[in-house]
Amino acid sequence: MESVVPEDHEYVIPRKEVTSMEDMQMWEKSEAYKEYVGFLLALNEAVQGKPLSGICPVTDITTGMLSLLDKLDQWIDETPPMEQPQRFGNQAFRKWYAKLKEGALDLLQSALPEKFYPAIPEIMVYLVEGFGNATRIDYGTGHEMSFLMLLCCLFKIGAFVESDKVAVVCQVFNRYLNLVRKLQLTYRMEPAGSHGVWSLDDYQFVPFIWGSSQLIDHPRIEPKSFLQPDVVESFSKEYMFIGCIEFINKVKTGLFAEHSNQLWNISGVNSWTKVNSGLIKMYKAEILAKFPVIQHVLFGSLLPFKVAESNRPIMPLRMNMASRTSGGFVRPGAPS
């Protein structure tokens, strides 16, 4: 996978383009949409059957991005929550976020070789937007999407290459996932636009997609297995899907079928391959086709808001893109 960006490429500061429901049709035909979905599916395929601890090539860029995330984690420790009356939305998050915003340029310059510096003013916007909203002190799938767009852009400029795909998921994205969980717990962040029990999770979506791909053809773990405490305890550090279940069990109380109904329904699906393809369809329908999420997406020169010239994404795929249908799983005997 080679960079598609020439040396004289003109970078721009990303901005919002989806301002009405009419713009949503353009979004789904756009180059940004094709590139983003192609990126998700290429990495989905790359990690099929691979645990988080598996051996994969690690480049200087991967190491640099991990160091960047470690620095952000350190800033959480240096910015403890404030004493305040309200339960949710600790205002210390605004101090942490201000550090992120102010330090984004330096963070990316430390993580990337100098030849990629011209791209930083464009891609740093996705980094800043990837950890939540400082005004509302919330976090959701739109923020997750922004960080994923940063990773996608790093492939587009040639910083990440074909051989980095597994490390980007199993190391960089997984490190990001642990970091945003720490943010959520430390600063009691509200879920942004949560669907409640009818969504997969209050905060994340993509780790369920890539995490279910990791579990395809696993000799022991079936979809129904993630309801078993011993499986969660044994495998949460190896598979992102199981790690997500562990986190939900940590922060929620009551019956799993009630507080995480969609996931309970998924436990009734008979194979991880079906779970994975169903989650991709659900993501397209419940996240990528929803105006309240896409109105916040930022478009620049790397992920442009223009009609794609072809359906071929930058990332070569051996699998067909799942067509968009309405999302959701129905398990026999599911509570209504």
Rank of each mutant, 00 (worst) to 15 (best):
I55S: 11
N44E: 06
M319N: 11
N90D: 15
T19I: 13
Q109N: 06
V128I: 15
V232M: 01
D60I: 12
E102N: 11
T273K: 04
I221D: 06
P6H: 14
V231W: 06
M124S: 13
G49Y: 11
L68V: 11
W264K: 09
Q84G: 10
S271P: 12
L105V: 07
L148Q: 01
E35A: 02
L108A: 03
A98M: 09
H218T: 12
E78V: 02
V307I: 07
S212E: 00
N90Y: 09
D8R: 10
C244K: 10
K224R: 04
Y11E: 00
F147Y: 07
P292L: 10
H9Y: 11
R188P: 08
K156C: 03
E246N: 09
D60R: 14
P14Q: 03
Y36A: 06
S310G: 12
N90I: 11
N276W: 06
L183F: 10
E238R: 14
S267C: 07
D60P: 06
L179W: 06
Y126M: 13
L100S: 01
E162C: 06
G327I: 09
E190S: 15
V297F: 09
Y176R: 06
K290N: 10
V47G: 08
S110G: 06
M319D: 08
P121H: 03
E7D: 01
I245D: 07
I157G: 01
M315Y: 15
V231T: 13
R324T: 15
L107H: 00
V125M: 11
Y139G: 02
T79Y: 03
K306L: 08
S310P: 14
E309A: 04
Q86R: 05
K50E: 13
E31L: 07
V169P: 02
N265F: 03
D202G: 05
E31K: 10
I245Q: 05
M189E: 15
M189A: 13
A192K: 12
P57W: 04
S146V: 00
S326Q: 13
Q109P: 02
S110Q: 09
P219G: 12
C170I: 08
P313Y: 13
F173N: 04
K50H: 11
N174A: 08
S260P: 01
V169L: 07
C153R: 05
P207H: 08
K115G: 08
T325V: 09
N261T: 03
S323L: 08
I287L: 15
F131V: 11
L177P: 00
Q214I: 06
Y33D: 04
Q74K: 11
M240Y: 00
P51G: 06
L154P: 02
R136S: 01
L150M: 00
Y117R: 10
G254L: 03
I287Y: 15
I266W: 07
D77Q: 05
L105R: 05
W272Y: 05
H9S: 09
P85V: 04
E2M: 01
F173T: 00
V293F: 15
A134P: 06
V4I: 14
R15C: 02
F93Y: 15
G49N: 11
G64I: 04
N311I: 14
Q228C: 01
W75A: 09
P121D: 02
F88C: 08
